[in-house]
Design a protein around this nucleic acid. Structure first.
Lengths: 209, 209
DNA sequence: AATATAAATGAATATTCATTTAGTTATGAA
DNA sequence: TTCATAACTAAATGAATATTCATTTATATT
């Protein structure tokens, strides 16, 4: 009888025959999920894509749900870490907002697959389990930043949701247009620096007193 | 107890024993899709939820794909029709934008299930097939509206995507917060008229010359 | 080198699923 | 009433799928 130690993966006592194998699984899982969606994602497809046995997947993960959940969690954490990198709540409002636009755009444009997986998870039944963790981090940092901006008289007092929506809603829309590769019209859309910062300036104007 | 209404569908000369049955199927399909997501949606679950035989579903729809596609299409068309209702490209920029915020918010808040299904479809593999049709209608109407606003000197010239993102990105974010029922913090969030129009005013300011 | 241990696997197993079949029931027309 | 037709159904089917089992293989430790 096998005991599956899927919780102890990162400890040192695991004999890794092929170190790249788990990483390969994660990478291919994201790829597959983006390609075929939740409705087409199966363990055998993933195994075949990795050129490993299905059984091996069950050494790494308890079951399909666990696999998707863990990988999803990793992706969201990876991306949110990138987004908050170098952010300081003491920034002026304008600098802070600009920093966030820069880092969020960069993170998302450089990791389109992660982005798409996270979007899929957002609208799936895994939603709740995944976004508890993520929002906590943001809540803290952005909350403090906003409170200070209000205290400094840089912006008016408003609900966090209003602030977030006006500040980042446009950015996320732009990135979605870019990632979907087609616009409201039929032409392909590329989110250039020029377009990004022109949009940013509009948003900044929205907050000006 | 069944109520039999002897009516004919204009479509296929189909004798409907129970007119409400197809409507029931559509309604429950949306419900189920929202509840269990694509990954959990099965024909038998749907049939059981409707208290009909699985085989009956195959009288209404060719197969599972057809079912999801048709129902998804109907939902998107229903919602987009509501959104464009009463919109006139000759509106001033401010009036037009206000009209859109009002109608889009109303449509989405009154149809949370439709909203969630459409969001799920957006990120699924059905995406392309469904959103071709929808974007066409919007493209036309909004394109004309925007061109006129630029011509009248109400707003600066900018790519359609910039305009759309800044104008509606915040609205969609607010509605998502509302539908998800929880905010960036932990409190439940309700999109009140006050919050909606306060956010609108910020967005409007973004476009002011 | 021998041993122990865990990773890895190919091949089963059990289950679920979409779809079909074969038959029943309700309906409209003659 | 009778007949033809189409809605409707329970049960069956076969394919796909998640998961497990019995072994084999690699590696660290002795």
């Amino acid at each position: 009888m096998n005991i599956h130690l899927y919780l102890r993966l990162n400890q040192n006592d695991m004999r890794i025959r092929d170190v790249n194998k788990i990483e390969l699984v994660k990478e291919k899982a994201v790829e597959l999920l983006v390609k075929v969606g939740f409705e087409g994602f199966t363990m055998s497809k993933l195994a075949k894509l990795c050129n490993i046995s299905v059984a091996t997947l069950y050494i790494y993960y308890k079951d399909k749900d666990d696999l998707i959940l863990q990988i999803g969690l990793e992706e969201t954490q990876k991306l949110s870490a990138m987004m908050l990198e170098g952010f300081d709540p003491n920034f002026t409002f304008e600098d802070g907002l600009r920093h966030q636009w820069k880092h969020r755009a960069k993170s998302m444009l450089e990791n389109p697959l992660s982005c798409q997986v996270i979007e899929q998870l957002r609208t799936s039944t895994y939603q709740e389990k995944i976004f508890e963790s993520m929002t906590e981090t943001f809540k803290q940092t952005l909350g403090v930043f906003m409170d200070r901006a209000v205290a400094k008289g840089e912006i008016d007092l408003m609900p966090m949701e209003t602030y977030w929506s006006v500040a980042f809603g446009p950015l996320y829309a732009l990135v979605r247009f870019h990632n979907e590769g087609r616009s409201i019209g039929g032409r392909p859309f590329i989110l250039t620096d020029e377009i990004l910062w022109a949009s940013f300036n509009l948003v900044l104007k929205a907050f000006k007193k």
